[in-house]
Every structure is written in structure tokens, then in C-alpha cells.
Design a protein around this nucleic acid. Structure first.
Lengths: 343, 343
DNA sequence: TAATATATACTCAAGTTGAGTATAAGGAGC
DNA sequence: GCTCCTTATACTCAACTTGAGTATATATTA
């Protein structure tokens, strides 16, 4: 069944499966993603998906998410396949792992032609305590706002939005063919990037990236359409559709933060409430009201005080807490409806 | 890159991709899923994944979700592949389509051996206005509580829970090896099925199904472990892992209902507010407070009255409404925090 | 015309949220 | 020691949301 046995003259070549991981950690109050540096595939091909010693590392090389092939013979499950090569390559012990999405558009991988195979990629989100990705591999932690500077509102509305993106989007909208299409484009911009009436929704990372891609504002869309790429100076592109995969991960993580206790995967075993808050802020990209955050976390019953105090903060010492990993309480944790900082 | 070119002696056979669709509609205030009937694969193999005329349809045949292979040569995207064969086979015009999850555990498809290939399946959720799936194929609409009778709380707590499942789960819990494992099992039961302290969470459909599977309560788990299947009399099994895929879809749809205006994909173009409410109730499996539902929907600004009235309901005629498909309002719609009916 | 449905409007207490003010407890500089 | 600065923690309060009613309107049917 499934018709897999049947032959169809239109049926194409085989399929290859890649696993792509967005591995996230928070250090120094910044969200970080594990990336590898690779030569752009438009220019050259390398042998293997995971960076190794000897790979080119010059400044023109493009960044990629760590990824590797799925070997059906070796791994019983997809998750096991992912954990396998990630742990092998980076010595990282992944905690929380979640499958995101399977990306399979034709042409997403330029090697499809030479391979004679369609390359599907299954994207994963993984959370880790930051650790040096030691051993083989040129993996390194990068601030994820390097790739999405418009997503960080912790210091107010990012300048890049007002100065670069909004003008670019507006130009794209007005260039539509029909007046009704122009209106529709403006409506989409408002819905994803916010406006007077519609507030910025931090979860819509993917929709924003896709709109920028469609508007030709993001480097990848020029590259994918065969245009000469003028390296954009305000955000960093990635190999293939890896920035799209990262946007998917970011949106999913931001959403999950609101109803599942995932922050605790990103902070050390004991932490002060303010450290916890700053981890949430790092991921969600905006600031929270300190007193309300505290009230919420305490009420949730997800944490308990240790009786220990932390005094390296300058002011009154803060009590440290630990996460109470109660299966029953694995329910909704929140952040309060993340407010947009002070306007 | 990706190491796809490299040969590895441990690397196994190729991979085949199937697309499996959970197509949902609501009619007569019941949620329905499109299923096809097929002979159980443990007993016999058929030629194709989509039911056709001539397929066995006797009472012992197992039910399956409609699914078909993904032809990389024919379809530019995975979504296009899905829409392609669904529309071809069922004449159904799919509206909302969403990718759910990629299932790839070894052994999920018993044909893997004979094919010499690993069979991955990408699950999709699709919403449709019910229509007769005419033409070729033995597809038919089934009430989805046929497969998950414990998920329908609209008439109070389902008897099957108290009479069959809870005793079964309890027995499974007490049979654990160590006392701490026993405690952990009970905690998992409470967390997924609710208890005095933890209320039933209608979104956790998959977790509940998986717990039942693990506890050996559900037919599939006996079958998959090679035990003689005593056809369970209280819920209906499906081929392979199709019931798991369906559980994933149901959980996702229930969750989405709360923050995206997806109900409108399931009701006709004009509807009374009570019809809308009953569609939500059908999906979520519990009853809502009528006056509050009305208040919520009206406040949301997602609907507008048509000025027309509908009088076939017996009492005072109800105004009909239509969905205002405003891109800006494609934001959170809700149901109120679905309450558990009258206790 | 009464009884019975259903639809729609309004009320109210309890809880949640956003945004403050007030107070506590440390260190640095003098 | 005292003052100032910093951060932590406690408490307040108005606005809004939610759950659960009661009240009224407008049909059909006996």
C-alpha cells in the first residue's frame, strides 16, 4: 500500500533526508544558536554537512545550521538520528528536543540536480545549557539576533525597522500591479509587523521573515532568484533555507514559552527570579514588568526557593530558586502577556 | 554537503515518503474524518494507498487515513503533493492545510522489509466543508469519536473512561517494577487524564493516546507487539500508526481553535452563533456557556450579522452571521477557556 | 392563549493583568 | 557611622476578563 511499489513514469528520483538542528541556549542574557561556517554552495561543494577541521573559515563563508543526513539503517527514530550526530559532533548533551517542520520545496537544495534526488530536511528545535561545543567541528554559538536584528525589542523598537525594513516593505507594497494588491500588501505588512492598531506579535517570526523574503529585502531572496547578491549590511544570511528554519524555531520557542515551562531548560539548575526573567526576555525579545513576572512565577508553583542568596548583583541579594519538576505541574507556565516594554 | 554523497557501510536502504492526511469536517454537530477501509497489512497487502473500487470492504477490514506517496518529480512542494492526490482521489477542495509532523520510527510500516526502504510519513491536517467524497475511492466520513470515544465530554464524562480505561490504566500503573515507577505512572495518568487537582485538558489528545498505547489498552499496541488481537469493543483501531497521526491532528486542531479563527473553515459561509458554537464544541469535545460564547465572538470583531434570520430552530429565530475575513483580524480568536460543562 | 423553545441582553462577583508605589537589604564612598 | 545607589521584594489599585447566572424577546406548537 501507499503505492510505493507501483511504478509511475512521472515518478522521479529518490529522496534523501537531512536533519537540521536549531540548538538554542541563553548566556549572558543573550539567546544563542549553534552555527557552523561553510563555503556558500553556489560557489563550491563540501563533502559533509557537519563542519570538520580543515573546513574553510574565511570571512566570506556563509553560516549554516548544523545538519546531517538521516541514516535509516542506523537509527530507529528520527529523534535518535538527530541526537546521534549532534552529540557526536558537538559533545553537547541535548535536553529538550522537538521536531519543527519538514521542508521539502523543490530547489531548496541546489545539489538536487547533481544528486538526482530530492532533498527533504526535517527541522528540529533543541534547547541546551550553553557549553563549549568542543572537539571536532567549527561550530560556534552566535547571538540569534545577528540573523534577525528586527526581532530584538528589548532596547525599544530596533532602528533597522524604521530605517531599513519599513521603507523597503513600503516600496514593495506600492510596486504591486493593482490597487487592490497594493492594499493587500499593506494589510499583510501591518498584520505581521504591527501598526497603530495591531501590536507587534513576537511569535510571528516566520511570517515576518517570509514577507521580507517575498519583498526581496533579505539577501537569500536575491540569491535564490539568481540575482547578484549585494551583501546586506544589516542582517546575516545563511546557507539554503536555514534562516527560514531558524525563524520557524524562534517562533515556536517564543510561542511555547507562554504555555509550557521550557525556560527552565535554558537556565542553570538554580537561578534568581531576575535571571529567569532575563532568559525569557532574551528569547521573547522584549522586556517584562519585574514585579508582575515575580508574582506570576511564584503563583505558578513551578519553582521553590533554595534559602540561598546571591549577592553578586550589586543591590540587595536575591534568593535563588530551583525548578520543581513535577509531572503534574508540567502544565501551562506563562509569561504574562509579554508587554512591549516602555513606549 | 550533508554527506549525502558519501558512502557509509552502515548506511541502509533508501527512504520513501508518504503523505497522510487527516481531513476534518463538521456536520450535524459532529466532527468527522475522512477514512478509507483497507485490509489489515498483517494479513494481506494491497497495491495502493488510496482506496479504490474493488477494495475489500468487509467488516473485518481495518480503517486507514487517506494517504499516498510523495512523488518528488511531480510536485514542487510537499503541500502540493498532498493537495494533488487528495483532490484527485476525493474531489474534495481542501481549504486550510497544515503540516503536522513527520513520523519515522522504524517498524511503523511492516512493508519496510520487503521494500528494503524506510517509510517516513508526513502527516497533514486539512479542514473542509463536508462534501460527499464522490468518484473513485471508498473514502467515507466517520465520526472521529469513533476512534477516541474518551475524548467526547459533551454529554458529561464518557462512561468508557470510568468503566474501561481508568481501571485499565490503574492496573498498568500498579504493575510497574518499583514503587517509584508506580508513583510516576500514576502521576502521568493524572497529568494526562486529569484528577481531582488537575483538570482535563482537551488538547492532550496525543499524550492520552500514547499512554493508552503504552499501557497496552489500545488494540494497536497488542497488534504491534505481535500479540493476538482481541478486537476491542470500545474504540476502533486503525492501520499502522494512523490513529496516532489522528490524535496529533486532533490535539493540534483543538489547540489552534483557541487562538486562531479556524472554526470558520468548518462552518458554511453564513451561520448562526449557536451553530458556530456547536462546531467549536464538536471539535473541543465539551460544552460552552452560550451567553459567554456569544459575547466573546461578538467582541472579537471576526463576524458581522447579515440581517437575515434563521427560524428552523424551534424558538426565536437567530440572526445569521458571516466571517469577516480581514487580514488584520487574522489574530487570536478564542473560545473562552473551554469549561468542562456542568459538573 | 399558554406552554415551550430558542435567542439575546444584562448583571455581578471573582480572578487576572498592567502599572505603579513602598519598603528592605546589600555595597561603595566618605 | 551615614548617604547614595542598586537591586529585591511586598503591596496596591484600577481596568479588564471570565464564569455563571437572571431577565427579556420572539418564534412554534398544543
Amino acid at each position: 500500500m501507499g503505492g510505493f511499489g507501483a511504478q509511475d513514469d512521472r515518478v522521479a528520483d529518490s529522496v534523501q533526508i537531512g536533519l537540521t538542528a536549531v540548538i538554542v541556549a541563553v548566556t549572558d542574557d543573550e539567546p544563542r544558536v549553534l552555527v557552523v561556517r561553510r563555503v556558500d554552495h553556489a560557489l563550491a561543494s563540501t563533502e559533509d554537512g557537519v563542519a570538520r577541521e580543515g573546513d574553510v573559515l574565511d570571512d566570506d563563508s556563509l553560516e549554516a545550521l548544523p545538519y546531517g543526513p538521516f541514516y535509516p539503517g542506523r537509527h530507529r527514530t528520527l529523534d535518535a538520528g538527530l541526537r546521534g550526530w549532534v552529540e557526536e559532533q558537538t559533545q553537547l548533551d541535548l535536553g529538550y528536543v522537538e521536531q519543527l517542520y519538514t521542508f521539502g520545496d523543490r530547489g531548496r537544495d541546489p545539489r538536487e540536480q547533481e544528486l538526482g534526488a530530492r532533498v527533504l530536511s526535517i527541522g528540529y528545535l533543541a534547547l541546551a545549557q550553553e557549553a563549549k561545543p568542543s572537539g571536532a567541528g567549527e561550530a560556534l554559538w552566535q547571538n540569534w539576533y545577528r540573523y534577525f536584528p528586527w526581532e530584538d525589542w528589548r532596547k525599544g523598537k530596533p532602528a533597522i525597522l524604521t530605517q531599513e525594513l519599513e521603507p523597503g516593505l513600503e516600496e514593495w507594497a506600492t510596486q504591486a500591479d493593482t490597487p487592490s494588491e497594493v492594499r493587500e500588501r499593506f494589510a499583510r505588512i501591518d498584520a505581521t509587523f504591527g501598526s497603530e492598531e495591531v501590536r507587534w506579535n513576537e511569535d510571528r517570526v516566520l511570517e515576518r521573515y517570509e514577507l521580507l523574503y517575498e519583498a526581496g529585502i533579505v539577501t537569500e531572496s536575491q540569491r535564490d532568484h539568481g540575482l547578484t547578491v549585494v551583501m546586506s549590511d544589516y542582517s546575516h544570511p545563511m546557507v539554503l533555507d536555514h534562516r527560514r528554519i531558524m525563524a520557524t524555531a524562534m517562533g515556536r520557542l517564543r510561542g511555547k514559552l507562554k504555555y509550557r515551562p521550557v525556560v527552565f531548560e535554558l537556565v542553570p539548575p538554580t537561578f534568581t527570579l531576575f535571571e529567569l526573567q532575563k532568559a525569557v526576555e532574551a528569547i521573547s525579545g522584549n522586556l517584562l514588568h519585574k514585579q508582575n513576572f515575580r508574582r506570576l512565577v511564584e503563583k505558578s508553583g513551578l519553582v521553590e526557593g533554595t534559602g540561598q542568596f546571591e549577592s553578586r548583583t550589586g543591590g540587595r541579594p536575591a534568593e535563588t530558586y530551583r525548578y520543581v519538576r513535577d509531572i503534574l505541574t508540567e502544565r501551562l507556565t506563562a509569561g504574562p502577556r509579554l508587554p512591549m516594554g516602555k513606549r
